[in-house]
Write a protein that binds this DNA or RNA. Structure first.
Lengths: 124, 124
DNA sequence: TGTCTATGTTGACGTTTGTCGAATCAGGTG
DNA sequence: CACCTGATTCGACAAACGTCAACATAGACA
């Protein structure tokens, strides 16, 4: 199962995305909100991680085997290390299927981050 | 007063935003693209910087004096240090007016980052 | 069983980062 | 001019980070 869903895209109008924080432009972040959101931005703040994330996110079906994306110029343990970081940040999930481990993006988190960078719709 | 300019919003349909990179989900980033984009994400990857940025972005008129936003729990030199980082990342600009220094957000960069997190429209 | 391949973990390393206090710069005001 | 306040720069230090080689683990297959 689950081959039917080609990428559980998020409904742009849905506010069911991770209720982490309001848009950055809406009001000053609290310390707590900043902590949460910064964790996600930080995870994408490294070139290697960004390439890995982009490789997974753009891969067919929204998921990719490590072997498909590990050609980013660093050693294999380093790739594993970065994928772990992305997982800890909630941006990726992983699943072992036989010999290979597949990573897929967490679409709701992507949407939540996008919302952070949204400019508030004309504040009155 | 000054309600006339609500925030120099970006036209969501305009592709005139910083032509850094395509959406993360469109195709695997090249090393160069990742380097550029990671620099921006990294700038927002610190809680203190995120609070400072949010404070500026949400401030009336889209700009704020350092004195208005420097209450984030760290020393004043540290605030200055982080604001500098945000400036170097192209997220903020600063201008001295008399005694005070005002920071304002670079809306096009915000838009560019938002576009990165956009989900590609049904990749065939 | 043993072996081979694909990933993850450990330990160590040099580098970068976040933080502060002290010193310095920039503009007002008396 | 001297003095005060707001903001940046400097110098130092501990903590976090990115990286690798070596080792460990998980599953496939003979």
């Amino acid at each position: 199962m689950s081959n039917t869903k080609v990428l559980p895209l998020i409904a742009p109008e849905s506010d069911a995305v991770a209720p982490c924080c309001p848009p950055l432009t809406e009001r000053p972040f609290t310390a707590e909100e900043a902590e949460t959101a910064a964790r996600m931005f930080k995870a994408l703040g490294d070139p290697v991680r960004l390439r890995l994330f982009s490789a997974v996110a753009s891969h067919e079906g929204g998921e990719a085997c490590v072997c498909d994306i590990s050609d980013v110029g660093v050693s294999q343990p380093t790739v594993s290390h970065h994928l772990k970081k992305l997982k800890e940040a909630g941006l990726l999930t992983s699943e072992r299927r036989g010999t290979w481990v597949y990573y897929r993006v967490e679409p709701s988190v992507l949407a939540a981050m996008g919302r952070l960078l949204t400019v508030a719709p004309a504040a009155t």
